[in-house]
Design a protein around this nucleic acid. Structure first.
Lengths: 234, 234, 234, 234
DNA sequence: TATGAATGAGCCTTCATTCAT
DNA sequence: AATGAATGAAGGCTCATTCAT
């Protein structure tokens, strides 16, 4: 009895996932508004009505897809471990670890990422709230992180709300270009993460490309850099 | 004759602008897809058909609104004058000038800004292309700027494409929060611009908030940041 | 399974036919352009959307109605059997058979016939092509028939393309008047067919009304007719 | 005063005619329903409103165009002079005269002819009545003609209403093909008229192409026509 | 559970006509 | 007479959702 029930539930979950995956593809290809429920069910090979046995409707499914995505991001970012960080080098390492993990996740969920950035804000107020909440959570997390870092003297004091926004923006646009539009597809994830972290840490003071020199600011005077007209674009 | 023609043209332009403005409000309030042409004309007090004397249709008008917005941004950003910049202090001043100007423009076009960030990517492929083109233009402009700065030894060498994306992201998220969502409404435009520039210049090395100390990095306690020699400011 | 599928298909076909029939009535009553889809569905008692489950749109349905009609005509005309025709009498009999069959079909599809003659050319270029093609087919068929008849010495040589057009015109106007406008509603189909055939065979040489004399031309010379005997009008 | 008034009236008539001519072109090119008043005025180079100074509306203008056409046809057909006709040869000559005159007129008004055949019945009930009336007039005229001819022993007695319809149909389809569709454009007007008349007079008994033999029925037996497999298509 | 036929509200757009100038 | 901006009614079609089977 229970075994049969379990099997049924498993089959149900499977089909649900199939539909959701198909929806992600359709939403990605056409955008939410041009996406048709009929296209989704056709991809899976079930009848129109079946869709409504698994989801309340088109919007609710979209909402769920966005929720999944946001939760994944939050979980990844929240995995940061500030405990053992005592130096800027420690910080750099930890940020690199988290950055690479996030990058990996986003690349794994390329379509959802694209949907999130392109469509999510233009579907319905409820979803906008979801997203606003996400950004607020992210802001709060980053503020906490940065406050800790500041207390430990690892970063300078400043308005951590603004800093949080800047960090989020920096990261998300780079992700957008790399994961969604492929503009930065020549750049290795590692290089991208390095740039993000170095920029977070030192703005445009320190060069990137020679890991050896990382942590040691270049002397920013003309004589030394004059022969560096064509910087090595990583 | 000519006088009458001129008067007509003037009235025509005026009405066109009225309709466009009403459309911006409606698009902002309901989003592109939920916006109704009927709501737009009702706001202006003209008949439904009149709308089509001035615009080809709902989407074309949206497209025009986005174009206007993008052009405004590009024009503002392009007003940067790299000529006389010889030091990081010069750079800071020039960036501040442009940053404040952009902020001012965006605040003046608050609704368009919101529409751009929330809706623009989810309307139609043609508009997406418009926007992609915009970002590419921006990227190219920033890359050029940074290359020049780098040649002058004002910033370190790195991948300027990535740097461009980071800068764009940084700026646009802060704008979004401040202008569109009001999250940073407590922060003065000036403070925001300062943060953006300082972060661009020095990441999280330098404190912000005490203009007096600007340019002098906080002592990032060397014991804690042992291998992190205090960066020498220009 | 298969049984249910069959039942469904049957019901589907039935409803499709119902809608098409209703459309024929509406097109006939109001003409294509003034016909409303809403009138069609109301006649059948289904929702507006249902219409689009069965037809791509108003024009496509019209096109289908015309196609059906044209096919019916071509099929009927093509049923002619020239094999055993060796004399003008044989020819007359065969033409009579086909003529009556066509008349019967057209009377059975009175409304479609009317729609064809009144509306079909004024709906859309695609439909015009359909109709042009129909006439070309008919022309070709008639030319072939007549060439055969000529070879057998049953009709005189002449330009069979012109002859084909004359025959088509002769027939279609008589049909139009009888079936569509009812002008000739006093005339029995048989009488009409007789007139058509006799006219085709002998122009105005032979009288119609006394089948007995058929085949024997009235003496058409001046002396006999100069005294102007009042002919008995049938 | 009166001179000025006359000049004004002349200018008015001229412009009215210009508009009507433009309308004919537009109606011909697009069909009545797809024709736009804006296209008509653009052709003439006047404002939209000007159109309504000369015509009550689009439909009324169409109606007028059709009326002009019908009147032209009736006038031409009515020019027949039965007075001196005493023999079938006389008849043939008179019919040829009228036939050529009609053909000439129709070729001169090619566009109106096309509009009449393709569009006229599908515009509005009032116009249909106009056309029905036209056909009835034509019918009556032909019936009268034929009755006279019959009385003079030139044609056999039959149902002259049916004969009238047959004649009208014969003529109009040949015209349609030649003038409107160009299918018979290889045939000289004279050849067409000859065919029409010969068919009217003798159906398919007499050959066409050798005017010499006109009036003398070919012997319709196989021996003479057997080697005539490929009749001279005029 | 699955099906898929049926629903029906809702909107963008066109264009003949009007009328103030 | 001429203009041309303004009108506004009207309808084809879509598609998310429901529900009887």
């Amino acid at each position: 009895m229970s075994a049969q029930r379990q099997r049924r539930q498993a089959r149900r979950d499977e089909r649900r996932e199939e539909l959701k995956q198909a929806a992600i593809e359709v939403f990605h290809e056409h955008g939410y508004h041009a996406a048709r429920v009929s296209q989704i069910v056709k991809k899976v090979g079930v009848a129109q009505g079946t869709f409504y046995l698994y989801f309340e409707g088109k919007q609710q499914l979209f909402s769920e897809i966005i929720s999944d995505f946001l939760e994944m991001v939050v979980t990844t970012v929240a995995s940061w471990e500030p405990g053992a960080i005592d130096s800027r080098e420690d910080l750099r390492e930890e940020l690199t670890r988290v950055g690479l993990m996030l990058t990996e996740e986003l690349l794994r969920n390329e379509l959802s990422t694209a949907i999130f950035f392109n469509e999510a804000m233009a579907v319905a107020p409820e979803i906008n709230e979801l997203i606003r909440h996400f950004y607020e959570t992210l802001q709060a997390m980053l503020s906490d992180f940065n406050r800790i870092l500041c207390q430990r003297g690892l970063i300078a004091p400043m308005d951590f709300t603004i800093l949080g926004s800047m960090t989020i923006g920096m990261v998300e646009r780079v992700i957008l270009e790399r994961v969604v539009y492929g503009t930065l597809k020549d750049a290795e994830p590692r290089a991208i993460v390095d740039h993000l972290i170095m920029h977070f840490l030192a703005g445009t003071i320190e060069p990137i490309g020679e890991p050896a020199s990382a942590g040691q600011p270049v002397a920013l005077d003309r004589t030394e850099t004059s022969d560096n007209a064509a910087p090595t674009e990583v």
